[in-house]
């Protein structure tokens, strides 16, 4: 086999490499963005915002620390939020999961009405009417659900509705965070 013949195989090899990447690409989701906070295990950005349920109280990141918890970004204008709301209620009630909420770019009146009508799974709800906290967290589409560790650092983010399948992943992450803290 002379050089010339070997050269003739270069295009085929290049194509095969390309093909492998394309095949891999079929199972990747280009729309899914990793969270910068979760990647770097950063704490929540600083904020001082009123609580949705008790407007006189100001909440800060410290209020959301203390135990491993979920932080759910939601709004009444978001149809998927409504979809997952029942599941969040079940998690809070049956599984005893601590869930905090961020009410994102919403009207407080409507949001309080929503919690009255569909029940409130959240221990505390931060009222982020202007979306400034959402912006600082890199929220790009409600609903988003974050896993916070006991120190209040962000460990994981899921974009989209939480359902039984997603909950399995979230549960794993929370478990891992807990064991890490012990060890």
């Amino acid at each position: 086999m002379n050089n010339r013949k070997l050269f003739a195989f270069i295009p085929l090899v290049l194509f095969l490499v390309l093909g492998i990447f394309l095949w891999r690409g079929l199972s990747l989701d280009p729309t899914e963005l990793p969270s910068e906070l979760a990647e770097k295990k950063k704490p929540l950005p600083a904020f001082e915002l009123p609580s949705l349920t008790e407007p006189e109280t100001l909440l800060t990141p410290a209020d959301l620390a203390g135990e491993v918890a979920l932080l759910n970004v939601w709004a009444t204008w978001c149809p998927t939020c409504k979809e997952e709301h029942g599941f969040l209620n079940r998690l809070a009630r049956d599984e005893g999961v601590t869930i905090y909420g961020i009410n994102y770019k919403d009207e407080p009146g409507k949001a309080r009405e929503w919690l009255r009508r569909y029940l409130n799974p959240y221990q505390k709800v931060v009222l982020d009417q202007e979306g400034t906290l959402g912006l600082d967290m890199g929220v790009y589409g409600a609903p988003e659900t974050y896993v916070l560790d006991a120190e209040g650092r962000v460990r994981y983010r899921h974009v989209g509705a939480v359902d039984a399948q997603v909950w399995e992943t979230l549960q794993q992450v929370m478990q891992q965070v807990r064991t890490e803290a012990k060890g």
């Binding site: 013949k5 003739a8 295009p11 093909g19 079929l26």
Partner: peptide
Amino acid sequence: RGLFILVMLAIVIGGSLLLYALRAG
């Protein structure tokens, strides 16, 4: 659908480049 096209690509492009590699030299 994506998988189907990928298989088709592999056959058409891969096959023709193989033929090329065998004959072009």
